[in-house]
């Protein structure tokens, strides 16, 4: 019907919308995210940013429309570790240390070549806290421990729900730096935020959700 693009988009949404008890939560929205692209999802509180993220991970079934990964329809069974999701719940075990938490993630998803647990923890600024239980870290440090997971795993698509929450100025710069590196490696990322965000590298793509 149409000529295929040279490379299919890493993550693509077509007429995606989500209904909760027949009430539309968001959509329909269309976007295509190619390798090296970062998009910012904007919307007020309650406009469905988190819901969109959960639909894109495959955990929520979209009401209508479809999500494509590498040009193929995807579900939880076919995602195969290509997507990593960081939500409000950080997925950290508080009784374990950042290093142990990373070890589980690496065991499940595999390691990005050329990284290891110590290197990524140093990179997110947790050097010296590797073996402290996560419970004893501050909220910002917990967030950093979760961000370290993004660096460690080979996933190509990052879905970050409010990654800037709880972070200081330096932490925000860190998130921006991680996103830039990820884009430079050919990965794609979708970032939600309800506030004004200053990306270091100029103006990002914006996807607006209306309440």
């Amino acid at each position: 019907m149409m000529t295929a693009p040279h490379t299919p988009a890493l993550l693509e949404a077509r007429a995606l919308c989500f209904l909760r008890q027949d009430e539309p939560v968001f959509g329909p929205i269309d976007f295509a995210l190619h390798g090296g692209e970062i998009a910012l999802v904007e919307g007020d509180n309650g406009s469905g940013k988190t819901t969109l993220m959960r639909v894109l991970t495959g955990m929520l079934r979209p009401g209508e429309g479809e999500v494509l990964l590498d040009g193929a329809p995807f579900s939880l069974d076919t995602v195969a570790g290509a997507v990593v999701f960081l939500g409000h719940h950080l997925g950290l075990k508080f009784d374990m240390t950042p290093r142990e938490n990373l070890r589980l993630a690496a065991g499940l998803y595999g390691l990005r070549s050329g990284t290891d647990e110590n290197a990524v923890l140093r990179e997110v600024g947790l050097a010296g806290y590797e073996d402290e239980p996560v419970r004893q870290l501050s909220a910002g440090q917990k967030k950093r421990a979760a961000l370290a997971r993004l660096l460690l795993l080979p996933a190509r698509v990052w879905l970050l729900d409010e990654p800037y929450a709880n972070l200081d100025r330096e932490g925000i710069a860190l998130v921006n730096r991680l996103l830039e590196q990820h884009a430079a490696r050919g990965g794609a990322a979708l970032v939600t935020s309800h506030g004004a965000v200053s990306f270091a590298g100029g103006e990002p793509r914006r996807i607006r959700l209306h309440a």
Binding site: V79, G81, V83, G87, H88, G91, L92, F94
Partner: peptide
């Protein structure tokens, strides 16, 4: 704590 999402993906 969100670990289930990690397992599901």
């Amino acid at each position: 704590d969100g670990s289930m999402e990690l397992l599901m993906l």
